[in-house]
Amino acid sequence: MALNTPQITPTKKITVRAIGEELPRGDYQRCPQCDMLFSLPEINSHQSAYCPRCQAKIRDGRDWSLTRLAAMAFTMLLLMPFAWGEPLLHIWLLGIRIDANVMQGIWQMTKQGDAITGSMVFFCVIGAPLILVTSIAYLWFGNRLGMNLRPVLLMLERLKEWVMLDIYLVGIGVASIKVQDYAHIQAGVGLFSFVALVILTTVTLSHLNVEELWERFYPQRPATRRDEKLRVCLGCHFTGYPDQRGRCPRCHIPLRLRRRHSLQKCWAALLASIVLLLPANLLPISIIYLNGGRQEDTILSGIMSLASSNIAVAGIVFIASILVPFTKVIVMFTLLLSIHFKCQQGLRTRILLLRMVTWIGRWSMLDLFVISLTMSLINRDQILAFTMGPAAFYFGAAVILTILAVEWLDSRLLWDAHESGNARFDD
């Protein structure tokens, strides 16, 4: 018995066209964080690309023209004298008006014999932002004059995390709450300039795509075929072959399989920071003279006294001054041990922890910024005066060393310790 099946006739004509040209192939790229070699397709503007294995951002879609970056830099340069030299806060102490600005706080630190601690604050609040705007201006002028731009481009990517104007702005709020127990506070004209400078700096850093600047100024022929001998440069993120001198053909720094002496430098910085954190938390970090009496505060006791007036601000200072430094030390110690013992479990967790400490590390400088600003506000000789204690130097040095330890660690070593050939990683 035959089955009668109805015929289905399409209502619209289906047209099949042959592909007349070869589909576009992607360029081969190595991930600078996990060293995976993959094919990167062509990316349009405002599109980002991520590593298929570790999800690290390979290409950032946010990109401004150099002219727009230069305009932002010149605007920031105009704001800087007002943000640093004009009063941020006014207080009335014992019937006398006192003005506080950024430069005055750094000068008070240096004047009291601790120039190293003052230079830490100076670099993060004044030096690094000033280098940022002058570097962008150098790129703008240098591109037109045919100057060598490689050193500036190499420095810009590392400079971003040292620009800490946003953290200093939080420190202004913390210092205001600490001082309000002794005097009446009012915002100064410099505060508005400083807030504007923070906003412009944040926007500029978020749109400063150094890798795209490398592509514009020093374009290189990408690798179009897969080759395990391809290496990625950690300076400019170019994937290719080393030249005859073993250097990256684009930025001219040595092109090595792994960062040289990464573990040794990381261990040295980490152990030194552990040693410095002990006096930083045991010795007094601030000293207040009130009517001839002397009151010393460690980091913890200062947080407890701050909690009596504002528990939320005390929580912020606790996280930045105690929780973050010790968390960074514990995480980095764990990561280094996992590399030495070739741990194969929990790779995803370790990668996330490394990215976390990379982002939060700079916030530990908050305590030094609060001390710097408070020193310029309260300084009335023996009637009422505020000065920093010996722990300030140890704390600042420990924070900087932990930042350097994270920067010096080559994250690809975590993958080397893991089993080879993993296309995915999980716990």
Rank of each mutant, 00 (worst) to 15 (best):
N4Q: 10
P6A: 13
T11Y: 14
K13D: 09
I14W: 12
G20T: 11
R25D: 10
R25Y: 14
D27C: 11
P32K: 12
D35I: 01
M36R: 15
E42M: 10
I43W: 13
N44A: 08
S45G: 13
Q47D: 14
S48A: 15
R53G: 12
D63G: 15
T67I: 15
A71Q: 02
A71Y: 03
L78P: 08
L78I: 02
P81H: 11
F82R: 04
P87W: 06
I91V: 03
L94D: 00
I96P: 04
R97K: 15
A100S: 14
G105Q: 15
I106H: 05
M109G: 05
K111I: 02
I126K: 14
I126V: 10
A128P: 03
I131L: 04
V133I: 14
I136Q: 09
Y138A: 04
L139A: 02
L139N: 02
W140M: 15
R144E: 12
L145S: 06
M147N: 02
N148L: 02
L149Q: 11
L149H: 04
R150F: 03
R150M: 05
V152L: 01
V152E: 01
L153W: 02
R158W: 02
R158K: 11
L159C: 03
V163G: 05
M164N: 04
L165G: 15
L165P: 12
L169C: 10
G171S: 13
A175Q: 02
S176A: 08
D181C: 02
A183C: 05
H184Y: 15
Q186Y: 11
G190Y: 03
S193P: 05
V198N: 13
V198G: 13
V203E: 05
V203Q: 03
T204V: 09
L205M: 14
V210D: 12
E211L: 10
E212M: 14
L213M: 14
P219H: 12
P219Y: 09
P222N: 05
R226Y: 15
D227H: 04
E228R: 05
F238M: 05
T239Q: 03
T239K: 02
T239R: 01
C251K: 00
R256P: 11
R256Y: 13
Q264S: 02
W267E: 04
A268L: 01
A269T: 04
L270M: 07
A272D: 02
L276I: 06
N281S: 10
L283V: 08
S286I: 03
L290T: 04
G293P: 06
Q295K: 06
G302C: 03
G302R: 00
I303S: 14
V313S: 12
G315P: 08
G315C: 07
A320E: 00
S321F: 00
I322F: 14
L323K: 08
V324I: 12
T327Y: 07
K328F: 00
M332W: 08
T334W: 12
Q345E: 13
L347A: 14
L347Y: 12
L347E: 13
L353T: 13
L354R: 09
V357H: 04
V357N: 10
T358H: 09
I360S: 03
W363T: 04
W363I: 02
M365K: 09
L366Y: 00
F369E: 15
V370D: 00
I371F: 08
L373Q: 10
T374E: 00
M375L: 10
L377R: 00
N379C: 07
D381G: 13
D381K: 02
A385L: 03
F386Y: 01
G389K: 01
P390C: 12
P390K: 07
G396F: 04
T402R: 00
L404A: 04
W408L: 04
L414C: 12
A417I: 09
A417P: 11
A417H: 10
G421Y: 05
G421Q: 08
D426I: 12
D426A: 13
D427R: 13
